[in-house]
Amino acid sequence: MCSTKTIFTRFYWLATFVLFGLAIATVCTYTPTEATMGPIQKIFYLHLPVAISTFLACLVCFIGSVGYAMKHDARWDRLAASAARVAVILCSVVLLTGMIWGRSAWGQWWTWSPRLTFSLVLWLLYVVYLMVRMSIESPQRRAVISAVYGIIAFLDVPLVYLSVRMLPDIHPGSVSLAPEMRLTLAAWFVPVLMLTAGLIATRYAIETQTDAQTPVDEAAAAAPGRFTWVGEVM
C-alpha cells in the first residue's frame, strides 16, 4: 500500500520527466532557428534555466547556512549541504553547455572573461564546500564551519550575475527573443526548476535518513579538531 507522500513523489517525478520531454519537443519542432547564430543558439534554452537554478540552489545553501548559524538546528545544515551538492551538478552543466556554445559561437572552448571566470570560481567554491564537509568528522564542527563557508561562498553569486553588466565581457548580457523563443524558454524553466527542487528534496531526505542511521560517535564529537579525508564527495 503506497502512502500519499509516495504517490505525490512518483507523480512529481513523472510530471517532471514528461515536461522535459515536451520541452525537448518544443526545441526540436516549434522554436525557430535564430538568424545570426543559427542552430547553436538552441543551447540557450537549457543553459539559462540551469544557470538560474544554480543561483537558486546557492541561495538555498545560503539560507540553510544562515539558518544553522542562527538556530544551531541540524536540519538547516542538511538543507545547506543538499543544496550545495545540487548546485555543483547544475553549475557543471552550465559550464559544459557554455563551453560547447563558446566553441561553436566564438571558436574557442574557454576564455577568461569575467562571467566565465566568476562561474568557474562559483563551481570551485561549492566543490571545496563539499570537500570541507567530508574532511571534518565532528558533526557540530562540520556544521559550524560549513555554515560560515556557505555564507561567504554565496557572495560570488551576485558577482556572476553583475559581472556581465559592470565589466566588458564577450558573454551576452541580455537578449531579445521572438515570442516563440520566449515560450520555449518558459517551457524549459518549468521542468528545470522542478528537477532542481526535486533533487534538493531527495538529497535532503537521504541526508536525514543517513544521519538517523549513523550512530553518534562520541569521540569524534568530543574531538572537534580531527580531520579525515573521505573519498566520497558527491
Binding site: 542552430p39 543551447i43 543553459h47 551538478i89 557543471s92 552543466v93 559544459l96 553547455t97 560547447i100 531527495t202
Partner: peptide, 26 residues
C-alpha cells in the same frame, strides 16, 4: 552546429538525470 547542440543537451540532461537516478538508488 547541430552536432554541438545534441552534444550539449546529451551532456546536460545526462548529468542532471544521471544524478537523479543515482539519488533514487541511494
Amino acid at each position: 552546429s547541430n552536432g554541438f547542440v545534441i552534444l550539449a543537451y546529451a551532456l546536460g540532461l545526462g548529468l542532471l538525470w544521471g544524478y537523479a537516478v543515482m539519488l533514487f538508488f541511494a
